[in-house]
Design a protein around this nucleic acid. Structure first.
Length: 567
RNA sequence: GGGGGCGUGGUGAAGUCUGGAGUUCACGCCGGCCUGUCAAGCCGGAGGUCGCGAGUUCAAAUCUCGUCGUCCCCGCCA
């Protein structure tokens, strides 16, 4: 056997050490009289051991250890390589500063938790490939040096040496290429695709990330969702040994926003948002009636038995205000069913009992009610719902589809902005044109435990429709021609109706592995400032490299850099 | 672009609020003892520019300002 020395227990006359390899640990027993070199073994030396496996003597078995029934009596131990004193210990017992972990990622990856994440990721991807291969999909690669199409996220740019002054972009997704594959007669495509978006990082966002990208021709939403469900079921079977039931639940976007205040609801718990408008429509309490008259809503959640003190309740009000609400009304249900609240005196008995019955209040429950524009109320109650009800880890898995996304989203300023990419098929072009705020597109998201795992849509396959969509999205003919002319042209040569999806593999694995950050399921991630402490990228490059590319740094950038130490 | 948390021997923490000698704990490291441990145990030892720079003060890990790094979040992510 060969592996790493995990821990050593030297008793003088007898030495034990745990030998670790990718499959786990086993205890090795050494008689130092026979093998004096064993006295010099230290943590993380790599060694090979020849010896006899035997059942441990009675009374020395270790039930905590998978291999605790047996041990290896070493006949020979050979040191394959030694190891310096470690910057941190290879175990899961303490949380080491993440910068140090990344700086010594090769050691961090030896920790059982990280090693398990790597293995889980590998088997998840294998399950994806297996399922899609069985369904007749082709795995096809698309280029990573592509044309920049300044839409959506910021592109990562790569300067061209052969055409100085011009740039490739790294793909934000294989979107247009997979659609070209459909035109090209590939009717079932998938790819484990690396994607790049030059935006600020978060615990669930990296500059580069990996998607399971799929697309199919002569099918629509139902075909896509059915296929994706089979893939997810298979991955979860692998990762959790759990058989998910199908089909996954579905919510429309409108329902999701109304009931959960978000387009990615966490359905592991209830605490739904309930509309109370009818209960307080004619209320003398101006906060409620005024909001309704202004076209807003009055909605609430039953947060259950919080048992909060007055200051705890005030904390919720402060939290609501921080989220943009003017205020928050709390009510606590007394044993006799009456409501205790600072605003009780403004509400009639009928109004209060109506509220209590609509929100199905029981004694001890805390009710939280907000009155404002629907968007604000949704955001505030949706977030309070998560604050108060969200389970800690990810022991349960709650997948769902959110369907019927709108074509446009309203920005904070009240403007309309496209909710998806401009190749998404609207349900009706005329509806999109005439009633843009209500128009629905054939777009859908996959949500797991309150996280958006991915999205997809039925694509536009008619070049005329595509033209009209550009127009409605405010992209002029000339602009559309120069940016996407090459693509729209392709649609003119007999394009099959097609639809697809992309699943964020990093996010899926993070949740399946119970990790807070996707960095823990990515072997070599970047820090929040986009740097890699191990290789110290990104770095400056030699001037001649820039010259070769026809690039000069801006004077202000150069000045800022010369203030730093040269590399 | 903005808000917040953190930064103390190699690692993890306590000390910071309320200034008074680099003080403490666990792991690791070095040396010694030890034949059934498994986070082995016991004895001894080394190891720190309290991220960095200014300021306040008789005195700063501790207070103030700036700065760097990192994490979380808002913006951003079609």
């Amino acid at each position: 056997m060969a592996g790493w020395v995990d821990r050593r227990r030297d008793h003088g006359g007898i030495i034990f050490f745990d030998l670790r390899d990718t499959s786990g640990l086993v205890q090795v027993v050494v008689d130092p009289e026979q093998l004096p070199a064993a006295r010099d073994l230290k943590m993380e030396y790599t060694v090979s051991v020849a010896g006899t496996v035997r059942v441990r003597p009675e009374g020395t078995k270790n039930s905590e250890m998978a291999t605790g029934e047996v041990e290896v009596v070493a006949g020979e131990v050979q040191v394959l390589s030694s190891a310096d004193a470690l910057p941190f210990m290879i175990n899961d017992r303490i949380e080491i500063d993440e910068r140090i972990r990344l700086q010594y990622r090769y050691l961090d990856l030896r920790r059982p938790r990280m090693a398990a994440n790597l293995r889980a990721r590998s088997s998840a991807v294998r399950a994806m490939r297996q399922t899609l291969d069985d369904l007749g999909f082709l795995e096809i690669e698309t280029p990573t040096l592509i044309r920049s199409t300044p839409e959506g996220a910021r592109d990562m740019l790569v300067p061209s040496r052969l055409s100085k002054g011009t740039f490739y972009a790294l793909p934000q997704s294989p979107q247009l290429f997979k659609q070209l594959l459909m035109v090209g007669g590939v009717d079932r495509y998938y790819q484990i695709a690396r994607c790049y978006r030059d935006e600020d990082l978060r615990s669930d966002r990296q500059l580069e990330f990996t998607q399971l990208d799929i697309e199919g021709a002569f099918w629509g939403q139902e075909g896509v969702l059915d296929t994706l469900e089979q893939v997810i079921v298979s991955v979860v079977q692998q990762a959790r040994d759990v058989e998910l039931s199908r089909p996954f639940p579905r919510l429309t976007y409108a329902d999701s926003m109304a009931r959960y205040g978000t387009d990615k609801p966490d359905l592991r718990f209830g605490m739904e948002i309930i509309d109370l408008g009818e209960a307080v429509a004619n209320s003398g309490f101006r906060t409620f009636s005024g909001a309704l008259e202004a076209g807003g809503v009055v909605r609430g959640i039953n947060a259950g038995r919080l048992g909060l003190s007055r200051s705890g309740l005030d904390g919720l009000v402060a939290r609501a205000q921080e989220l943009g609400a003017g205020g928050l009304v709390w009510m606590v249900v007394e044993d006799d069913g009456s409501l205790r609240s600072p605003v009780a005196k403004f509400l009639s008995d009928l109004e209060m009992s109506d509220i209590a019955s609509r929100i199905t209040a029981s004694p001890g429950d805390t009710l939280l009610i907000a009155a404002d524009q629907a968007k604000v109320v949704g955001r505030v109650l949706g977030q309070l719902r998560l604050d108060l009800g969200r389970p800690r880890g990810h022991d349960d898995l709650s997948f769902l589809w959110v369907v019927d996304f709108p074509v446009f989203e309203e920005t904070e300023g009240g403007d309309l902005a496209p909710a998806h990419h401009p190749f998404t098929s609207p349900v009706s072009v005329s509806e999109m044109r005439d009633n843009p705020r209500e128009a629905v597109s054939k777009a859908y998201d996959l949500v797991l435990n309150g996280s958006e795992l991915g999205s997809g849509s039925v694509r536009i396959h008619d070049p005329e429709v595509q033209k009209q969509v550009f127009e409605v999205l405010g992209i002029s003919d000339r602009e559309a021609e120069s940016r996407f002319g090459w693509f729209v042209k392709a649609l003119r040569y007999g394009t099959p109706p097609h639809a697809g999806f992309a699943v964020g593999i990093d996010r899926l694995l993070a949740i399946l592995q119970g990790e807070q950050s996707i960095r823990d399921v990515i072997p070599f991630p970047k820090t929040q400032t986009g740097t890699d402490p191990l290789t110290e990228s990104p770095t400056r490059v030699d001037d001649f490299q820039l010259i070769e590319l026809g690039i000069d740094l801006r004077p202000d950038v150069r000045a800022a850099l010369s203030g730093e130490k040269d590399d």
